[in-house]
Design a protein around this nucleic acid. Structure first.
Lengths: 313, 313
DNA sequence: CTGAAAGCGCTTACAG
DNA sequence: CTGAAAGCGCTTACAG
């Protein structure tokens, strides 16, 4: 066992003859060392956990892919947890995660529950909060300002000559931040108060269609709408086409996420781009640096966003 | 430590007074037991690994969600690996997975590489192959027949009066099976040989648009097309709209996956439904049964499919 | 270059 | 009801 361990980890410390015998035996038996035992011994699990609201959501797909690949390249594996749960459930999930002693934890959004913050802090595991912003991160932060995004979209539509705004928003926390800030910015520019509709996340194409119908039923004469996801924006386009509403002439539409479909629709969809792949890659890098004993260059990194102007607005 | 372990796992074996003291200390310290150590001792990791071609793909989203939730309900956690790799890479990935000693491994597709099969078999870990079919599963199988699907879609289009068929397919293995069988079935019904276009997976809306343009450039007068994903089918609809092609009159379109967007597009998309959620839930159930020492009722389960008829075909 | 020994943090059968 | 001891499968400093 000792020699086997050395043959695998430090083959130069083993004589060629022995090495050959050991390798033959390994191949014959299909032996794969137990990484958990090694992890226990070295207290390095080479495991990283990410918590997403839902694995099915396409918004975080870019981040997940980049995270998986960046970690993989560094010899880490990714565990995925779904955090779209009530608070007591989240506590249990957090305990299950910390119990595995991952070398890092990536959170989608910031952790607000004091109980959760305490658990994470006490664990001593490197934590990266992402996709949101806060003055008091638990540890590291890849910051995205949904308030800035909401305000920027409001301004964008205003500058495109639209004045009667609406927002179709998911009912998750970050979508709420965007929507609220969008409404505030519109009011600050002297526009009438935008109509805000909140729909259960993750938002869908069908909700986009239903959302536009609801807006038109409301009787308000809307000329610009911000959707919480590109799928939803595509749904709005479909409904607009069916109802004979001209986009962007009568109605400008802005999406969020800059998915493939946004560029490829007709009309193509103006959308807010947030670099999810950069978030994933950066998070992997920060955690690997920590595990290697270094302080990362900066523990708070601003991710930023841009509005990709296309035909729909 | 002994008493702490008992306080957590078998509190009825500890006096109320001691229990209270221990719990107070646990809360004060934020102590979370090391599950890896427990796993090593009990050789039950309560970890399940799933290998998907890509985390970003929406086709397996339903399976992943169901798998996460079903496992969670049984006290298991899910690890996710991306298998969209070359063969030597897959070998390394498999070793990294087996090294963690998960209580089960869920594979998307069947494992063909003899090397991979050997490793998995030697590991003794319960394996569930899914989303494909084979006469020689490694262990358990949740079988989906892509050959039957391809033939059924061919027949469906024929019965709808379409005779000049095409297929826009991803270049992954299972999509190839569907496309090849679709072509064979068309020939068997006496139709001219369908045009098959293969595009890099995961397929996108943009590829659907480009695919239809390519089909039209080819000069063949196509009246029915089977797309490897609903997103691609939506892209075909967009391109058809732009080019003024009537769907389904001039061109019938069938998708695959029965995503939300299929029902919600206009025209709505006829699509092949495979119950991914059932695959996820069933896989979790089979693995949990094995870990509990039982043989599962059946180690090969046919999942089946149905064509959901909508406006596009 | 190779082996015996200790220890990572748990759990559990065994005494007390 | 509570504690001392062994052992899960590794890795590594220490002898030989």
């Amino acid at each position: 066992m000792i020699t086997v361990s050395r043959a695998i980890n430090t083959p130069q410390q083993v004589s060629p003859a022995t090495l050959e015998k050991v390798n033959a035996a390994i191949a014959a038996l299909g032996y794969v060392p137990n990484l958990m035992a090694g992890a226990l011994r070295l207290s390095r699990s080479h495991l990283v956990t990410v918590l997403v609201p839902s694995v099915a959501g396409s918004l975080f797909a870019g981040m997940l892919t980049a995270l998986t690949e960046s970690l993989d390249a560094r010899g880490y594996q990714l565990m995925v947890g779904q955090s779209g749960y009530d608070v007591p459930r989240e506590d249990a999930l957090l305990r299950a995660i910390i119990g595995r002693r991952p070398d890092g934890i990536v959170l989608t959004g910031v952790m607000h529950s004091p109980q959760g913050r305490r658990l994470l802090q006490a664990s001593g595991i490197p934590v990266v909060e992402t996709w949101d912003t806060t003055a008091t991160p638990i540890d590291m932060l890849l910051s995205v300002s949904h308030e800035q995004i909401g305000a920027a979209v409001s301004r964008y539509l205003f500058e495109a000559g639209k004045t009667r705004l609406a927002v179709l928003s998911g009912d998750d926390e970050r979508a709420h931040l965007r929507a609220a800030s969008y409404v505030r910015a519109a009011l600050a520019m002297g526009l009438p108060e935008p109509v805000a509709l909140y729909l259960p996340a993750p938002t869908t194409h069908a909700q986009g269609r239903e959302g536009l119908r609801a807006l038109r039923r409301s009787g308000k004469d809307i000329d610009g709408v911000f959707c919480t996801s590109d799928l939803m924006a595509a749904g709005v386009l479909t409904e607009a086409m069916v109802q004979g509403v001209d986009v962007p002439g009568q109605l400008a539409v802005v999406g969020f996420g800059d998915m493939d479909i946004a560029a490829s629709m007709s009309p193509s969809i103006t959308s807010v781009h947030v670099d999810g792949a950069a978030i994933g890659a950066k998070a992997a890098e920060m955690i690997a640096a920590r595990a290697g004993g270094q302080r990362p260059a900066a523990s708070i990194v601003e991710i930023g966003f841009r509005i990709v102007a296309r035909e729909s607005a």
